[in-house]
Design a protein around this nucleic acid. Structure first.
Lengths: 285, 285
DNA sequence: GCAAAATGTGGTAAAATAACTACCTTATAG
DNA sequence: CTATAAGGTAGTTATTTTACCACATTTTGC
């Protein structure tokens, strides 16, 4: 809503711009103001405020206030705030959770569903799926391996360059290789992606939008930039990657239909002897 | 807000209860109703509605409507919804992100800050930190290793039972062992936790609340139950674990003060030759 | 145990406030 | 100088709130 007002501000005429500015100055207080009070604080007449409200597809001023109030809540719900040196445990805990959530929410809004869908198409038909990652992305690749394995897909994961190079070179049409790198600037990963691409394998990049890696891959699942790259909280993006991988696994599973239910049950049963039994067995380790 | 109304409902007198019921029946429509319309649909008079609103610490009916609208947004923002067999890519993508966020938000609200603080105390002074996990929790342990290593802490991670047993048996006072298991019912992990505890090492469990593992560990960072254990989205909890580990790493780093900044810079520099350079180098791989 | 007072509950009607409409003035561009 | 758009004034309508009254329910004194 505030974004919408800011966008439209320049197309507005003099008086209505005054109204926009008055609202932008302190949006939360506006929700408690009457049309007369807002008109006065903007230095315009009441009908001008009313006309302004209607141009934002509201039924009138009260309706506008409610829409504004709603948008303020969703806007202020999860905001990334930097951790400070003297934060209490409570403070930094909340900040990190909130920032993580904000990152995921941003990804949710920006994600390219078309790319997800294309990736699922390829993964579904893959003879072999390989996940490649180095460093922190190595654990993401390992996690993906577990997840896809559970869903009965032919999957491997590698977190060292040599194996990745060998597998990439030996790949061929029908294989899918998912290259994971947050920055998308790791030289080895870019080279390996190119190598794999040249063999006819489908290469999917899970990386930062517009990065060198993204540029050399036909299918890119891009993770948006994180605005606040604070030294204290630099790792929210891998959670976005993990979530995207959850989405892919789910997408593939859905497409494969009901057959996999029996498989999932088998996996569960195989783990049972390793566990302390209780009612309502859950699906995770 | 709706919860508040439901709570107070029984203490209300006959007419005001009618108002409460009318609102609860369809809260979102109420935000667009006038006091007269709501009064009619509740079968009471307008002043009754007004009195009702005031008893919910609103200035009046319009104010009440705005508060209600706000609370509806925050309430409906992130709701866990099951993935259905015939969902489109757009639908299941959104559902998985939303559910993941909902899980994190639930964890944020329930997390035991005291336990975090205690865990940070021990981690900070540890001579050696070991992360143990099996299966999917193995990747979580690996991830933790990366993160803590970046922050210059003496850290190792193991994802096989034998190594874990050996390390646990060989541990002693001053060592911190973090045992990661979502269900907290894996027999090996429980035994290893007990073994490590008996040597004098500090054992921290990152697991489901009230699980067998939680019961044998002095410090428990509990992950709340996920209500909706749908076969299609069974893995949101490990994101909670990862986030809690982020919190721990941050907590330790904060306590260690400014010294680590130089260290972080060194790590960054060491990675530089492996990358394609661009302006604004980020902190992740 | 009953009656009377007191308190609580809920409605009517009128007053106050807020929002909206119609219309008129002023500015501005052609 | 006219046409048109922008913006304000004033009046109307809608909405909310207040004040007050009637009825019911409970409490208390005898």
């Amino acid at each position: 809503m505030l974004t919408k007002i800011r966008q439209k501000r320049d197309q507005l005429n003099k008086s209505e711009r005054k109204v926009a500015d008055a609202i932008l100055l302190n949006p939360s207080i506006v929700t408690q103001l009457s049309i007369a009070a807002l008109a006065k604080s903007a230095g315009v007449s009441e009908p001008t405020v009313n006309r302004f409200c209607r141009s934002f597809m509201s039924k009138g001023f009260p309706d506008f206030k409610i829409q504004l109030a709603k948008s303020l809540v969703s806007g202020s719900m999860f905001v990334t705030r930097s951790v400070e040196q003297d934060d209490s445990a409570e403070q930094y805990t909340d900040k990190i959770f909130t920032s993580t959530i904000a990152t995921l929410d941003a990804a949710r809004k920006q994600i390219d569903v078309k790319a997800i869908s294309t990736a699922v198409d390829h993964l579904m038909q893959a003879k072999q799926i390989a996940f490649f990652g180095l460093g922190a992305s190595g654990s993401v690749a390992r996690d993906a391996q577990h997840k896809f394995f559970r869903f009965n897909l032919p999957v491997v994961a590698y977190d060292d360059v040599l194996m990745q190079r060998m597998v990439a070179a030996a790949s061929h049409t029908g294989d899918v290789i998912v290259v994971i790198s947050y920055t998308g600037r790791t030289k080895d990963m870019v080279e390996i992606a190119q190598l794999a691409g040249s063999t006819g394998a489908t290469v999917i990049a899970l990386t930062l939008e517009d990065s060198p890696l993204a540029k050399v891959c036909p299918i890119v699942l891009s993770v948006p930039h994180v605005e606040n790259t604070d030294v204290y909280m630099p790792m929210t993006s891998r959670l976005t990657q993990l979530t995207i991988l959850d989405v892919l696994a789910t997408g593939v599973t859905l497409r494969r239909g009901v057959g996999f239910h029996q498989h999932l049950e088998k996996v569960k049963q195989s783990l049972k002897p390793t566990r302390y039994a209780i009612e309502g067995e859950a699906a995770e380790v």
